[in-house]
Simulated assay, not measured.
Amino acid sequence: MEVGVPKEIKDQEYRVGLTPGSVRVLSEAGHRVFVETLAGDGSGFDDQDYIEAGAKIVATASEAWSRELVIKVKEPLTAEYGFLRANQILFTYLHLAANRELTEALLEAGGVAIAYESVELPSGAFPLLSPMSVIAGRLSIQFGAHFLERQQGGRGVLLSGIPGVKSGHVVILGGGVVGTEAARIALGMGAQVTILDINVERLAYLETLFGSQVELLYSTSQSIAEAVPAADLVVGAVLVPGKKPPTLVSRQLVERMRPGSVIVDVAVDQGGCIETLKVTSHSSPTYTKAGVVHYGVPNMPGAVPWTATQALNHSTLPYILQLANQGLTALEKNASLAKGLNVKNHQLLHPAVQEVFPDL
């Protein structure tokens, strides 16, 4: 099969769909890989690395997109809609629930679109979402700490505190992978940490991880209303597979936060759980609303592409190899991969996205 790897064009998105190592595996399996020139530069892989791995370097995005199987990292942007076509399998992050325009473009094109974030194991785990969730969770604290600096518009709080001065307070909404990793880094920095979640079993598991170091609260509107105004940094870490998360922090609640506090919503690519938060970019990552610094970059792991690209490929390569070897038959043989199918032959097939767009 011919596999195309276009260069990502989202703002400061430096990840790439395939590493040279993954290209070598595909090449050795008899597949031809076409990589757009400079596609891997941001992740530390130059064209020569891909050539040595067996890829052919192509000069334009069109040449990479015109293959049977297209591997990307982020969803197609408007400028790429013209590359979508029938008889094409697109495998990438899609997050369609937050993007009606892209959903309509995929339906009109008539190809097959499989979303990384929808691939689901029988256990309920999301193996292709997890590695980026780990990175985003860890980065949420790193970025949050940075934007708490006074020069960045924050309160001037050092999360670790120092002897004689109390540490900063981090409130994390959601105790899944993102929330757990955020808590891990926040604790490592010496912050006070509160996690809120609606799953009592998950809270019990978090207690086994963190013991009494973290305050674990059952998430209700009241507990959120009490915790958020006391926070220096609020991390939105709520995932509802395929759907927009519920709005947990209202505009009125944001207005009760102290000026210079920071909100980082990792779920912004699915619509976010903070009413006042909108999508930003790595070029312009924050804005201030009601005196609170808001960070809403939807491709946070793109800030650490050398790490993120390799982590993503470790998880995606087995599925990519199945698609290259078997084509659409892979969806019949692998139930987990089939869960990732969002669009096929002008039809919207993922149940959660269907609920969001019942008219499509």
Rank of each mutant, 00 (worst) to 15 (best):
Q88Y: 10
V254P: 06
F210G: 05
A125D: 03
G164Q: 10
Q12N: 14
G236D: 09
K166H: 13
L94I: 07
S284E: 15
G188D: 05
A308N: 01
E215Q: 14
A290E: 15
A53F: 06
I320E: 11
A53S: 14
F34Y: 13
Q151L: 02
G42D: 08
K56P: 09
G54V: 04
S130N: 09
T37W: 05
V343W: 03
M132I: 06
S22Q: 11
S22Y: 03
L216R: 12
G44C: 06
V170I: 04
G21S: 10
I51V: 15
T309I: 02
T286P: 13
V249L: 10
G168S: 15
G190Y: 08
N299W: 12
Q222M: 06
R15N: 08
G272Y: 00
A64E: 01
H31F: 01
Y93H: 13
I198G: 00
G291F: 11
L102T: 09
H282L: 07
R85D: 08
T276W: 15
V33Y: 00
T92Q: 06
E149A: 12
G296F: 15
A231K: 07
T37H: 09
V228C: 10
E75H: 09
A113P: 02
V356W: 01
A59N: 09
N99C: 07
P229F: 05
Y14Q: 01
A311L: 10
Q88P: 12
T60C: 07
S221W: 08
A227I: 13
Q252W: 08
N313K: 03
L18A: 01
L38V: 08
E36G: 11
A267F: 04
V292H: 00
L102Y: 04
A113Y: 02
L129H: 05
A97E: 08
S22C: 14
R184G: 15
V254A: 14
G44M: 02
D49V: 03
F143C: 07
A303Y: 08
V58C: 13
V356M: 04
L277W: 12
A230L: 12
L328F: 11
V177S: 11
T194G: 09
K243C: 03
L233W: 14
R100A: 05
Q152I: 13
S281H: 00
P298G: 02
F83Q: 10
P259V: 02
T309Q: 02
Q142F: 00
A125K: 02
S27E: 13
F45K: 01
